[in-house]
Design a protein around this nucleic acid. Structure first.
Lengths: 199, 199
DNA sequence: CGGCCAGGTTAACGCTCGCTAACAGCTCGT
DNA sequence: ACGAGCTGTTAGCGAGCGTTAACCTGGCCG
C-alpha cells in the first residue's frame, strides 16, 4: 500500500499517458496498456486499483507539478529581488518547457478531466485554479492597468496558445525545439502586452 | 437517401455535438443522443448510418464552414481593395465568432478527429490544412519579414488561443460576449505582431 | 530449507455498447 | 379507401470492455 514510485509504476504511467493522449481515455483498453509495457492485461491491477486510478494519478501529478513549479519560480524571482516581468517570463518559460517536453500530459490535462470520478476531479480542478490564480497575480503586477476579469481570460487564452504545440503532428518543416520555445515566448508576451494596451 | 437537411437531422446533430463535447465521443451512447432529442435509441438509424456518421458530418461540416468562410472573407477584402491587415482582422473576427457561438463544435474540432474512420479523417484534415494555409498566406502578407515555418507555427498557436474559450466553464466573473471578442482579437493580433517583431 | 509475498499468468464473468430485426402507426397520392 | 413509405417502437444479438478469481513462480528472510 505504499504510494512510492517503483520503476514499473512509472513505466506504466508513461505508456498510459501516451496512449490516452493518442486515442482518448475510453479509446484505450487495459490490455493495450499492459502490452505497451510487456505484461498483459490484468497484471496492471498489481500496481493500480483500476484504469481510473491511472488517469487520476496522471492528472493530479501534472497539475501538482505545474502549480508547484510555478510557485517556486515566482518565489525565486521575489527572493532575487527581480521585477514582476522576470517572474512572468519565468512562468512562461516553465510552461513552455512542460508543453514541449511532456506533450502527452499537456494533452490529457485539458482533454480528459471530465473522465475522472467526481472526488478526484475536484482535487485536480483546485490545483488548476491555484495555478491560474498564480499567473493572474503576476500578470496584474506586470500590467496594473488590466482588470481582473480580462486578466483571467487572457491567462486562459495564453494557456491555449502555449498548449497548442501537441497539435502539431508533423515534425518536419517546423522550428526546432529552441526556436519553437522562443517563438512561443514572444507570442505569449505579445498577446498579454496587447491585452493590457487595449484596457 | 437524400442528404438534405431535415429539422430532425439538424436537431440530432446539435445535441450530439453538445454531448460529444461534454463527455467525449466514446463517452456518449446512442441511447443518450436519442433521449436528448426525445426519441429513443435505434431510431437514430433512420437518419444516420451510425454513430461514426454523425461525428463525420459534424467535423466535415465545421471544417468546411471555417475554410469557406475564411476564403469568402479574404476574397471580399481583396475585392474591396483593402490592405492585408483588413483581411487578417476579418479572419480573426470570423474565427472568434465561431469559437464563441459554436463552442461545442470548436471543442470537437481539435479533440475528436482521431475517432474518425481513416477516409473521413483524411478529408477533414485536408479542409483544416487548407484553412491553415489560408491564414499563413494572409499572415505572411501582413508580416513579410516572418518566414514560413514560424508563421505556420504562430497560426497554430493563435488557433489554440482563440479556441481556448470553451475551457472557461464558469460564465460568471468573465467578460461578456462583445468584450470577450474584442479581448481575443487584441490577444491574437498582439501575438502575431510580437512573433514578426522577433524574426 | 521452507514459506511468504510480489508480480506475473489465463479463464471467465457481467455489463455496456453499437447495431439489426421485427413490427406498428401516420400521412399521403392515386 | 388503401397500400407505400417514412418514422418511430421494443427485443435481442454479438463483441468488447474493466474487473475478479484462481493459479503459478522465483527470490528473499528467518
Amino acid at each position: 500500500m505504499t504510494t512510492h514510485a517503483t520503476p514499473r509504476r512509472e513505466q506504466i504511467l508513461r505508456e498510459a499517458s501516451r496512449l490516452f493522449a493518442e486515442r482518448g481515455f475510453h479509446g484505450v483498453g487495459v490490455d493495450e496498456i499492459g502490452a505497451a509495457v510487456g505484461i498483459s492485461g490484468p497484471a496492471l491491477y498489481r500496481h493500480f486499483a483500476g484504469k481510473d486510478a491511472m488517469l487520476t494519478e496522471l492528472l493530479v501529478g501534472i497539475s501538482s507539478r505545474l502549480r508547484d513549479g510555478g510557485r517556486r519560480r515566482v518565489a525565486e524571482a521575489a527572493e532575487a529581488g527581480l521585477p514582476p516581468e522576470a517572474a512572468l517570463d519565468s512562468l512562461i518559460g516553465g510552461h513552455i518547457d512542460f508543453a514541449l517536453d511532456d506533450r502527452a500530459l499537456i494533452t490529457l490535462h485539458d482533454r480528459e478531466l471530465d473522465r475522472l470520478p467526481e472526488a478526484d476531479r475536484k482535487q485536480v480542478r483546485q490545483l488548476q485554479r491555484q495555478y491560474v490564480e498564480l499567473w493572474v497575480e503576476v500578470v496584474r503586477r506586470v500590467y496594473p492597468e488590466l482588470p481582473e476579469a480580462p486578466a483571467r481570460a487572457s491567462v486562459h487564452a495564453v494557456f491555449g496558445l502555449l498548449n497548442s504545440t501537441p497539435h502539431l503532428s508533423r515534425p518536419s518543416s517546423l522550428p526546432d525545439r529552441d526556436e519553437m520555445a522562443a517563438l512561443l515566448h514572444r507570442l505569449a508576451r505579445g498577446a498579454l502586452t496587447a491585452a493590457a494596451a487595449g484596457a
